[in-house]
């Protein structure tokens, strides 16, 4: 569905005599039916990559293809469901009319447009804000409107750029449900986000970009192989060192410890701890697997 072949993009400022290399030789292939995450620090090239996929920018070198077509040709023929990083909608439009406008731009016949707009309003809980002007909306409601307008058309390519930015935890969770509902074998979903936890939950694979380069692709949700974990006990337990020689107390929390090892070692020691009558409250990886990979990828590229 998405093919990027050795794509580079350099911004040139003639007045300031400056060149910024936003993407450098990016090669990536994303299939239909896949949810693909893009992670990266600020300025990594995520938004540039998305702009190239939508035909808003042309690569300086290399080529991007969507379903075998030039991106602009594909977008003008089929349309893309797209949530921009900063939701930009004319401030005087009211919420409901904004959705009807976008539905008409998506070339939906009137009855279909009406159904889709109602569905988007219901799904995103925007009923009470329908008559408000866009400029009167809070950051969270504006973000929900941005998601709603992206859901109007039934596109085979869905692109979300920082989708949960400004959303509260309830709507962040609902957004995850929306993505789950959007999944379909013929559809590709691309999510660019700083929120690694979100990407780990939603994406099948996550590409880590840094300084315009694809550092690595991580298969999300894969098995943990060990590392540093947090162990929370019901009460302080001085005897813990008998089982975990490397256990260190988390500062200010006498019943919380950092332990490490392979999964097999950790499981064996935990069983011993429980047999010794020590009550466990929680045991979880200190960093998610994606976070570990992200830190390693970004660290590697910067060193």
């Amino acid at each position: 569905m998405i093919e990027l072949e050795n794509v580079s993009k350099t911004y040139i400022s003639l007045f300031r005599n400056r060149r910024v290399e936003a993407l450098a030789g990016l090669t990536l292939s994303i299939s239909r039916g896949e949810v693909f995450g893009i992670a990266g620090p600020n300025g990594a090239g995520k938004s540039t990559m998305l702009s190239i996929l939508l035909g808003y920018l042309r690569p300086t070198a290399g080529q991007a293809r969507l379903d075998g077509h030039n991106p602009r040709q594909y977008v003008e023929r089929s349309g893309v469901s797209y949530l921009t990083e900063l939701v930009s909608i004319p401030p005087r439009w009211n919420l409901e009319s904004a959705l009807y406008r976008y539905a008409s731009l998506s070339n939906l016949p009137k009855p279909t447009a009406r159904d889709r707009v109602r569905h988007a309003i219901d799904t995103l809980g925007l009923e009470e804000h329908c008559k408000k002007q866009v400029r009167q909306l809070s950051k969270g409601n504006l973000q929900r409107l941005g998601i709603a307008q992206a859901l109007l058309a039934d596109s085979d390519l869905v692109i979300f750029d920082e989708p949960t930015h400004g959303l509260d935890p309830v709507w962040t969770q609902k957004f995850r449900d929306i993505v789950t509902e959007l999944r379909r074998p013929s559809r590709t979903i691309l999510i660019a986000s700083h929120n690694l936890d979100e990407l780990e939950r939603l994406a099948d694979r996550v590409g880590i970009l840094n300084q315009g380069r694809l550092q690595r692709i991580v298969t999300a949700g894969g098995a943990h192989t060990g590392g540093v974990y947090r162990l929370v006990l019901a009460h302080p337990a001085p005897r813990l060192a008998e089982f975990f020689a490397d256990a260190t107390v988390v500062e200010g929390r006498s019943n919380e410890f950092r332990v490490s090892g392979t999964l097999e070692q950790l499981n064996q020691r935990l069983a011993e701890v429980m047999e010794a009558g020590i009550t466990l409250v929680a045991f979880y990886p200190e960093q998610s697997r994606l976070e570990t990979e992200f830190r390693a990828a970004v660290g590697e590229s910067e060193s």
Partner: peptide, 14 residues
């Protein structure tokens, strides 16, 4: 300049 084009031209519009 306002960035409105992003939501308009992601649709099948020339």
């Amino acid at each position: 300049i306002q960035g409105y084009y992003r939501s308009i031209f992601s649709r099948p519009v020339s």
